[in-house]
Every structure is written in C-alpha cells, then in structure tokens.
C-alpha cells in the first residue's frame, strides 16, 4: 500500500545521500547533489538496487529507469517531485 503523504524532499534527500555514502564508503558530506551517480561512484546495478530499496523504504513506486534519465541526486529529486512522489 502506498503512502498517502509523500515524503518531503529534505527527508528523501537526506536518506539518499546517506544511502549512497554507505554504499561507496564515503562521508555524506562528500556526496555532491549535482554530480551523476556514476561520477559519485555508483555503478548501474547499484543505482537499480537503490531504487528498489527506496521503494520499500518510502512505499512509493519508481520506474527503474528514472534515475538513469535524471542521473544526479538533484535532478532525480526534481523528477520525483514532478511526479508528486515527494513533496
């Protein structure tokens, strides 16, 4: 069942930064919002896995291709906001 209230952008951003930091063993402060997932150090499979995890974590549905079409954290958040998956 999906959430009635979408997560806020700030909550989602904090989660995704911490998630990526844990995957690639960096401090969250080192994760730039305007760098591509690839440049940050995530390979494509890790991005797909992240999408599955965030679906479970936030009870939302996200197409697996979306983070590849919007390949930075900032642009990914914009796309999620546009789809009203985050507020």
């Amino acid at each position: 069942m999906l959430n009635d209230q979408p997560p806020s952008r700030s909550v989602f951003q904090e989660w995704i930064v911490n998630y990526i930091a844990s995957v690639i063993d960096l401090e969250p402060e080192a994760i730039a919002l305007d760098r591509t997932f690839h440049d940050i150090g995530m390979d494509s499979a890790e991005v797909v896995i992240m999408t599955g995890v965030l679906e479970e974590e936030f009870a939302i549905e996200v197409r697996a291709e979306l983070p590849f079409e919007h390949p930075t954290i900032a642009s990914f958040l914009d796309a999620l906001a546009e789809k009203k998956l985050i507020s």
């Binding site: 998630y19 995957v23 797909v48 992240m50 599955g52 995890v53």
Partner: peptide, 21 residues
C-alpha cells in the same frame, strides 16, 4: 531486466532490512 532487478532488491530489503550488496 532493470525492473526485475529492482524488484528483487526491494524484496531483499523488505525481508532483510538492509540493502542487497
């Protein structure tokens, strides 16, 4: 393939409460 991988990652996280690594 990406959707299928995403679903298995979601299932793993749902059952194990940690990301698939």
């Amino acid at each position: 393939a990406m959707e299928a991988t995403k679903r298995l990652a979601a299932e793993y996280y749902r059952l194990r409460r940690k990301p698939l690594r």
